[in-house]
């Protein structure tokens, strides 16, 4: 068995290397965010600050717009999750359960949309929004977020509904339910984990969304956190390294917490569609 023990040691070593490579960038920036200006430029760089400067965080929260950016992100993300589920759930249910002409075409259209670059979309949208006066309008922005995230979620939820026995709906229909009621009272409760997965993935993707708000918003007080971080970065000399680092940590903490707590939902949602394809 010594061969097996050597193999296990090799696996442990490989895991440690992997964890270091993937955790280090974030931990290093966390460390930078707690330094004094003197420690930032010290050579060699100390691994940890002598005493953590938590004041860097209060400074960033007080002197930059980052608190507002966070709040804006929460609003836009909440709206996007709600809107996406509102549109995707019925569509995915119909694609899973109903047979009709044009079903395959609709599915393919949705699948194709998933692979189109959002940048190509926002160029004409920008001109359209300027004409319609929708620039700097959260409703318009959220609709674009929903459109960009909906295709993948529609596919995922359709696969999820496929895995729920049709007999459930049929029993409800025989009992005199309409389709809508069958979906609401029988299928939706059974699909709750899948819908949670879809919602969480939309939340993470919307939190990260950059090109859409970058182009469709020009009022900096409306920026979500992603555009806000770039805005901080572009303040150049005014924002020193430890504050930029603190701002970055503030931008990732909410999404990383959600991710670590709910990752079992996310892993399922990322892989389910592809496995069945």
């Amino acid at each position: 068995m010594t061969g097996r023990r050597w193999q296990n040691a090799g696996l442990y070593l490989a895991m440690v290397v992997t964890v270091v490579v993937f955790a280090f960038p974030v931990l290093w920036v966390l460390s930078l965010s707690l330094r004094t200006s003197r420690e930032i430029v010290a050579t060699p760089p100390p691994l940890l600050p002598a005493s953590p400067q938590w004041g860097n965080y209060t400074h960033v929260l007080e002197t930059t717009g980052i608190g507002g950016y966070l709040l804006n992100s929460v609003i836009v993300v909440a709206g996007s999750v709600f809107g996406c589920l509102l549109l995707c759930v019925p569509a995915a249910y119909a694609l899973s359960r109903l047979r009709f002409r044009g079903r395959a075409t609709f599915s393919r259209g949705v699948l194709a949309a998933q692979l189109i670059s959002p940048l190509v979309l926002v160029i004409p949208m920008y001109r359209l929004f300027v004409t319609l006066g929708l620039l700097n309008n959260y409703l318009g922005l959220i609709l674009v977020y929903v459109a960009v995230t909906a295709p993948f979620q529609t596919w995922f939820l359709r696969n999820y509904f496929d895995s729920i026995p049709v007999e459930l709906d049929e029993a409800a229909l025989v009992d005199g339910c309409t389709r809508g009621r069958a979906l609401r009272s029988v299928v939706l409760p059974a699909a709750r984990p899948g819908i949670a997965s879809a919602g969480i993935v939309v939340a993470v993707l919307s939190w990260s969304q950059f090109v859409v708000p970058f182009v469709l918003l020009d009022d900096s007080s409306m920026y979500p956190i992603s555009v806000g971080v770039v805005n901080l970065q572009n303040q150049g000399g005014e924002i020193t390294t430890q504050y930029l680092a603190a701002g970055s940590i503030i931008a990732v903490v909410p999404v990383v917490l959600v991710f670590v707590a709910l990752q079992r939902y996310i892993v399922g949602a990322l892989t389910a569609g592809s496995l069945k394809g």
Partner: peptide, 25 residues
Amino acid sequence: VLTAWAIPGVVIGVLWQLLYQESTS
């Protein structure tokens, strides 16, 4: 490893810019 997927792209850009700092510090 998966946590990297959840981090917004712009923040990853900032993280790596800080890692790549071009002085001896």
